[in-house]
Nucleic acid binder design. Structure first.
Length: 278
DNA sequence: GCCCAGGTGGGAG
DNA sequence: CTCCCACATGGG
C-alpha cells in the first residue's frame, strides 16, 4: 500500500447508495469491498467506514477531480434539503431516509447523453452491460495499478469523434437495439458542431433542456436526466416509469414542486431509488 | 408465449 | 396539442 490515498469525513455520503442509485453506470461494488469508479478518463477506488471515506488517489487529484464529481463542498446542502421535506409527507420522508447518502453526481456531458439515450425502455443491468461493451469497443484502453499491485485494465468512455464514425452494424452487436441510430446521429451532430457541448454547459436549466431536446433520440425524460446528472441542474425532475407511478399513487398526479423550488431533482432521486429497491 | 425495463420519433386527428 | 404505435433486447 505505497500508493497515496485521501481520507475525508463526509456526511450525507454513501458510496454504496450512490453506486446503486441508477444515475451512474460505470461504478461497481467489488468483491473485496471497494467500489470502482470509472469516470473523467480515470479509474478510482473508494472505500468507506461510517462517515470516513477513503479515495485511492492523492489529495490534489481529489481536490481537482473527485470532489466536484461527488458533489462534495459544492454548494448542495443535503441536510438542509432533507430537513425541508414537508412533515406531513411521510412517503417523501421515508424515501429520503432510505436514500440517505445519495448525491447528485457531476458526470461528463457526452457520456450522459449517450448513456441515457441507451437507458430508454431498458433496465439498469442491461444499460450497464451495453455501456461497458461500448467502452470496450470504442474507448481508449488504460491501465491502473491497484494498491495491492495488480494491473487493472479499463476503458475510457468513447469520444464523439469515434462514435460518429462507428458502423451501425457494430453498434447493434453491443445490444443497444434500435438506439444504434440515435447514438450515431447524436455523435455525428456533436462532431459537426450542430450541438456545442461547452455552450450547453453554461446554459441555465430551461435553455439547456430545450437544446438537448433537439438531439435525435433525446426526449423529455432523457433531457432531464442529462440536466440533472451532467449539468447539475438539481431542479430537473426526470419523469420515468417509476416517477409516473409514484406521482400518481402518492401525490394524486401532481408533485408539490412549489415546496421544493430549485432542488426537486434531489428529492426525485430519493423517490426513484426508494421505488427501485423496494 | 407474455410483460417489463430510468422513452422517443413519427404520424394522425 | 394529445393520442397511437413501432421500436431491439434480454430476463422473469
Amino acid at each position: 500500500m505505497s500508493q497515496e490515498l485521501t481520507k475525508k469525513r463526509i456526511i450525507n455520503f454513501s458510496i454504496d447508495q450512490i453506486c446503486e442509485s441508477g444515475q451512474c453506470f460505470r461504478m461497481n461494488r467489488l468483491d473485496n469491498g471497494f467500489t470502482e469508479v470509472i469516470a473523467n478518463d480515470r479509474y478510482l477506488l473508494v472505500s468507506q467506514d461510517g462517515d470516513e471515506v477513503t479515495f485511492y488517489c492523492d489529495n490534489s487529484e481529489y481536490e481537482e477531480i473527485w470532489k466536484r464529481y461527488f458533489d462534495i463542498d459544492n454548494g448542495t446542502d443535503y441536510t438542509k434539503i432533507i430537513e425541508s421535506i414537508d412533515t406531513d409527507d411521510l412517503y417523501l420522508k421515508n424515501a429520503a431516509v432510505y436514500g440517505d447518502g445519495i448525491r447528485i453526481l457531476n458526470q461528463n456531458l457526452f457520456e450522459m447523453i449517450i448513456s441515457f439515450i441507451i437507458s430508454q425502455r431498458n433496465n439498469i443491468k442491461r444499460i450497464k452491460g451495453c455501456i461497458s461493451k461500448l467502452c470496450e469497443k470504442y474507448g481508449q484502453k488504460k491501465e491502473y495499478i491497484s494498491p495491492d499491485g495488480n494491473v487493472v485494465i479499463y476503458y475510457d468512455f468513447p469520444t464523439p469523434d469515434v462514435l460518429a464514425k462507428a458502423e451501425i452494424e457494430d453498434l447493434k452487436k453491443l445490444g443497444v437495439g434500435y438506439r444504434d441510430v440515435y447514438i450515431k446521429k447524436a455523435a455525428e451532430d456533436i462532431v459537426a458542431g450542430v450541438f456545442d457541448l461547452d455552450a450547453i454547459k453554461s446554459m441555465d436549466y430551461d435553455t439547456a433542456k430545450k437544446e438537448l431536446l433537439k438531439i435525435y433520440g433525446v426526449g423529455n425524460k432523457v433531457a432531464d436526466c442529462i440536466c440533472l446528472f451532467a449539468l447539475h441542474h438539481i431542479d430537473a425532475f426526470p419523469m420515468d416509469t417509476h416517477m409516473i407511478s409514484i406521482v400518481d399513487n402518492e401525490y394524486n398526479g401532481s408533485f408539490p414542486f412549489e415546496k421544493y423550488d430549485g432542488y426537486a431533482g434531489v428529492l426525485q432521486q430519493y423517490m426513484f431509488f426508494y421505488d427501485l429497491k423496494k
